[in-house]
Nucleic acid binder design. Sequence first.
DNA 1: GGGTAACCGAGACGGTACGTCTAGTCTTTAA
DNA 2: TTAAAGACTAGACGTACCGTCTCGGTTACCC
Lengths: 210, 210, 210, 210
Amino acid sequence: MAAEAALISVVPNSNPGSNPEKRPGRPRSDKSREAILDATRKMLMHTPLRDISIEAVAKRAGVGKTTIYRWWPHKAALVMEAFLAQPGLQNILPTTPGADDALKVQLEKLIRQLRGQNGRIVANIIAEAQAEPEALDLLNKSFMNERVENLRRHLTQGKAEGLFNADLDTDMAIDQLLGPVFYRLLTNPEALDERFNSHYPEQAVNTLKA
Amino acid sequence: MAAEAALISVVPNSNPGSNPEKRPGRPRSDKSREAILDATRKMLMHTPLRDISIEAVAKRAGVGKTTIYRWWPHKAALVMEAFLAQPGLQNILPTTPGADDALKVQLEKLIRQLRGQNGRIVANIIAEAQAEPEALDLLNKSFMNERVENLRRHLTQGKAEGLFNADLDTDMAIDQLLGPVFYRLLTNPEALDERFNSHYPEQAVNTLKA
Amino acid sequence: MAAEAALISVVPNSNPGSNPEKRPGRPRSDKSREAILDATRKMLMHTPLRDISIEAVAKRAGVGKTTIYRWWPHKAALVMEAFLAQPGLQNILPTTPGADDALKVQLEKLIRQLRGQNGRIVANIIAEAQAEPEALDLLNKSFMNERVENLRRHLTQGKAEGLFNADLDTDMAIDQLLGPVFYRLLTNPEALDERFNSHYPEQAVNTLKA
Amino acid sequence: MAAEAALISVVPNSNPGSNPEKRPGRPRSDKSREAILDATRKMLMHTPLRDISIEAVAKRAGVGKTTIYRWWPHKAALVMEAFLAQPGLQNILPTTPGADDALKVQLEKLIRQLRGQNGRIVANIIAEAQAEPEALDLLNKSFMNERVENLRRHLTQGKAEGLFNADLDTDMAIDQLLGPVFYRLLTNPEALDERFNSHYPEQAVNTLKA
DNA sequence: GGGTAACCGAGACGGTACGTCTAGTCTTTAA
DNA sequence: TTAAAGACTAGACGTACCGTCTCGGTTACCC
C-alpha cells in the first residue's frame, strides 16, 4: 500500500485528479489503462526491456500509441508502474529486535526479490535508466529509497546501540550492503543464487560490526 | 598491452588466424578497422551509447555498414573494443608491500577510471549488456576479470598472511569491494566523487580485516 | 474520368471507404498522396522504372517511406497510378460510323499514346509486371481492358454487319490488332514511328476483312 | 549450329581471339564457363530472372564473381547465352512446299517453344532488356532475327508467287505474324495455349493472303 | 627455365535499396 | 473538451547484392 501511494505520487498524471472525477471532457478509460499495464507485464515476462516498444505495447493492448504517451512520459515509467504494482514487491518487513538482524532480513528479502524473472526486469530498468535520467530518479523513488531508508534506520539505531562503530559513514555503509547485490545482478546474475542469499547478508553485516 | 591481447582473444574474428595471414581472399582492411574504432570513440565522447547507431558510425568512418557487421556482432562488442583499446584503461598497478594497501590502490585506481566520461561509458556498456548476454561475457572478460583477479590475488595473499580472516569467502569479498563502486556508478553516478574515492577504499578494506 | 474511376476501383485501399470519411483517426493526407504521385511522375520522365526506388520517391516527395508502403503494394502499382492518372491517356474516342474506321481510329490513338516517353513507361510497366503477377492484372484492368473492350465492340458489330467474317475468332482478332503494336514497343521501339502509325492500322484492319 | 555461331559472335569477349589460342596468360577455364552456364540454367528453372543475382550464380557455380563479370557484361547476356545454348531452341525447320505452310509451321514451332517454362524465361529476358538497351540488341540478334528472317524469306517468296499481295509491307507483315504471339506471352501468358497454337497460325497467315 | 601475362577462387570493400519497425507528432472522430 | 484512433515524417534496423578491389595461386606463352 505504501508502495502504491509512493508510485502514484511519482508517476505524473497517473491519476489525473485527486477528487473523484470533476474535470470536464471525456474521462480516462480505465479499460485502456489496465490493458496497457497488462500488455506491458506480459511482454516483460519474455522480452528484454530494450526490445519492448511502445508501439508493440499499444498493438498488444489494442490501444493507440497516443494513449500511452499521454499518460506515461517514458517507457521506463510505464514499465516501472506495470512492474511495481504487482504483488510480492512490497517491502513489508517483520519487526526484529536487533539492528543487525533487521539488516540481514532486509538484505535477504531483497535478494529473494531480485532472483529470477523479477531480477532481470529490475536490471533492465536500471539499464534503461542509464539513458534516461528522469527514469533513474523514478527508480530511486519508487524502489530503492524505501530499502535504503530502512537500512539507514537500522544502521543509525545500531550505531546508537554501539553495535556499529559510531564514526561509520552511514551512506557508504548502505552502499556497502546493497552494492554487492546489484553488482551481481547486473554483471553476473546467476551468481545471485541460494548460496549467496544464505551467506552474504551474514558476512556483509558482520564486517560492519565494531 | 595485456589489455590489448586480452581483447583480441575475446572479440571473435578480430584476428582471423593466429598464423600470419594464410587465408584466401582480400585481407581485412586495417584502415577501415581503425576508422571504425576511431569514429566510435569520437561519438562516445558526446553521445549516449543508446543513441549511437551503426549507420552513423559507418557514415562517419566512411565505411559500408556491412564492414561493421562483418567484424562485430553487436554494437556492444564494437563499443567495447573501441573503448577499452584506448590509453588510460590499462590496469597496471605499482607493486605495494601490504595486501591491504594493494587492495586500496586497486580500488582507487578503479574509481578514478570510472569517474567522468569514462564512467558514463562503462555504465552504458553494462546497460547495453543487459539485453545482450554475449556482451555481458565480453564485458567480464575484457574489463572486469583483470580487476577481479588482481583483487583475488591480494585477498588470497592477505588471508595467508593472517591479515584477513581465513574463512572469508573470497568471491564474496571481491564483490563486497567492487559492488559499491558499480552500484554508485549505475544508480547515483554523482556520488562517485572525490570524497568517495578518498574514504571508500580505506573503509571497505578495513571492514574486511580480521 | 472513366480511367480515374477504373483505377481507383483497382488499386486497393486507394479510397478507404466509399462513404465520405466516417472513420476515426487521422484521415489520409491528400497532400502526401499528390506529392508522391507527382514525384513518381517526374522521375518517370528521365529514369527507367527499374532504377526508380521507393526510397528516392519518398525523399523527393518529402514523405516517409511507410506512407508509400501503406497505400501501394508494389512499385508497379504506384507507377501505374501515377502514370495513368495523367492527362492524355484517357481513351475517349470520337464516334465513327463504320466499324472498320472505328478500329483504325482506336489503333492510331493507341500508337500515338505509346510513342516517345509514354511508350517507354508502358514498356517498363509491362516488364515490371513479368515478375509481379498482381501487377500484370492491374495493368490489364487499368490500361489494356478498355482498349480491348472497345476493339471487341467494334469487331462484334463489324461481324454483325458482314464487314468481317462471321466465324472470325474475336479474341484472336483483337490480339492480331494489338499484338504488333506492343511487339514493336517492346522489341524495337524506334519502329513505332510515324510511318508505322500511318500504315499499320489500315493494313491490319483490312487484312481482317471478309 | 547457326544459332551457336550467331551467339558467339554476338556476346563480346566470348571468344577472345579469332585465331585459336595464341595469347599469353592462362587461358579461359572451360570448366568455369560451363559451371556458370549450368548454374544459370538451373536457377532459371524455378526463379524469376529478376530474383537471380550474379552473386547467387557465382556461389552455385563455385566460381568467383569476377569470373562472371569478366566474360559477360550483363545479367541479360549471361542468361541469354545460358538459355539459348540449350537444345530445343534451334530453329531448324523442315522444308515445306508452300510459302503459306512454311509460315504456319514457323509460327507453330515458335508458339510451342514459348509455352511453359521457356516462355516465361523469354518474357523475362524481354523484360530485362527494357532497362538495358544492349540486351535488347542481343535478344534480337540471337533469338528474334533468325525467326524474322525466315518469315521474311517465305513472305517474299509468297509475294513472288502471287500468294500474297505484292504491295504488302513485308516488315509490317512479319510483325503482324509475330506480334500477337509475344503480346500474349507478355500480357496474358496462359492464353498461349493449345487452342491458340492450333488456330492462330492458320488464321494469321490466311488473313495475309491476297 | 625464368619471366611475364592473363586467368582463377575467395572474399573484403564502399555503396544503395530493401521492406519493417519504432519514435514522437498531428489531425481527425467519439464520448 | 478531452480521449482515443490512426496517419504522418523521420530514420535506424540488419540483409542482400552491386560492381570493384586485392590477395595467393595457377597455367599458359615467350625468350
